[in-house]
Design a binder for these strands. Structure first.
Length: 301
DNA sequence: ATAATTTGACCAGC
DNA sequence: GCTGGTCAAATTAT
């Protein structure tokens, strides 16, 4: 029995392949500009490319309802010996001590074309907990923490800031790795976990490296861990305005433009990792191995 | 009613 | 003292 791909399958397929292509180009750049790329970032791109192939193949074969696990978290970057102090920087309730914690930054461009929510969604649920005007920066910085901070004590956070010059570029800085998925998304444990997860249940988005949609929602608040259709939310209502410079907020996102999907799709502009520092990055010290369950479907609250 | 965001205040580090 | 990061009450969305 042949499985005729549905319309959305085809779109996903095209998107997946486009992403793969995009990443191949990025990898090419990385290889050309060795100086600005780290081994990890190249490795990461390779993983992502592989993932895209896997995804595309499974879409074609229709055999795998669940996408393969993939490394989707941000990459730490070379240079810093990732010491493991994961637990010591600031802790929740106790002290708000701000110590050097691992961070790794990525730049993401949001622009028309290609891939979509995928590109923006890093697969985790984020909840905004603050916003600050940063000295010297035109745009405020948004602070997000893992949705399951309380539920699972996941201390992962990220900061999202729009680039001064290029409004289509967002700099996303991650801090601390997610502990929620790791703990709960054990592939060997067939149970889907009773509680909420850090992962995006949506197989289409769970592997994506970024989660801008959740980060950029000042105008219209929608749940970052939204159980609802990410794509509708994103495609339908939010589109970063590349030209206008509204102000503040990630707010330069314009709601309801009613663009076509292709126009609304943000893409990863750069996977430039400018990771700074030590610790905690999602891959753990061992990098992402088979054991690391990235894209495993999790649950949303 | 519950959950997420907004926003000013608070705190720690420089 | 200034700045960045977080908290938490109030507000808004679902």
């Amino acid at each position: 029995m042949e499985n005729i791909p549905s319309d959305s399958d085809l779109r996903n397929l095209v998107r997946e392949l486009s992403q793969g292509k995009e990443m191949v180009m990025q990898l090419q750049n990385h290889l050309n500009l060795q100086s600005s790329s780290s081994h990890e970032s190249r490795e990461f791109l390779l993983q992502r490319i592989m993932y895209s192939y896997d995804q595309a193949l499974s879409m074609l074969t229709r055999n795998a309802p669940e996408p393969p696990l993939l490394p989707e978290s941000p990459l730490p970057v070379a240079g810093s010996p990732l010491s493991d102090d994961s637990d010591q920087d600031f802790t929740d309730q106790a002290s708000r001590k701000r110590k050097a914690s691992a961070r790794w930054t990525r730049k993401v461009r949001v622009g028309p074309e290609v891939g979509i929510e995928g590109q923006l969604d890093d697969g985790y649920g984020w909840r905004k907990y603050g916003q600050k005007d940063i000295l010297g920066a035109k745009h405020p910085r948004g602070y997000y923490r893992c949705t399951f901070r309380h539920a699972h004590g996941c201390l992962a956070t990220k900061q999202v800031q729009k680039s001064d010059e290029d409004p289509t570029i967002f700099e996303i800085t991650y801090r601390r790795k997610h502990t929620c998925n790791r703990a709960l998304n054990n592939p060997s444990a067939s149970i889907p976990v009773p509680g909420p997860e850090c992962e995006d249940p949506n197989p289409l988005t769970q592997n994506l490296p970024f989660n801008i949609k959740t980060s950029l929602s000042p105008l219209n608040t929608f749940s970052s861990s939204s159980p609802i259709n990410n794509r509708d939310v994103f495609l339908g209502n939010y589109y970063p305005n590349p030209t206008n410079d509204l102000n503040g907020d990630y707010g330069e996102l314009i709601p309801n433009l009613g663009h076509s999907e292709s126009e609304l799709t943000p893409i990863i502009a750069a996977m430039t990792n400018s990771a700074t520092l030590d610790t905690d990055f999602p891959f753990g010290q061992s990098g992402f191995g088979p054991g690391f369950d990235f894209g495993h479907p999790g649950h949303y609250p």
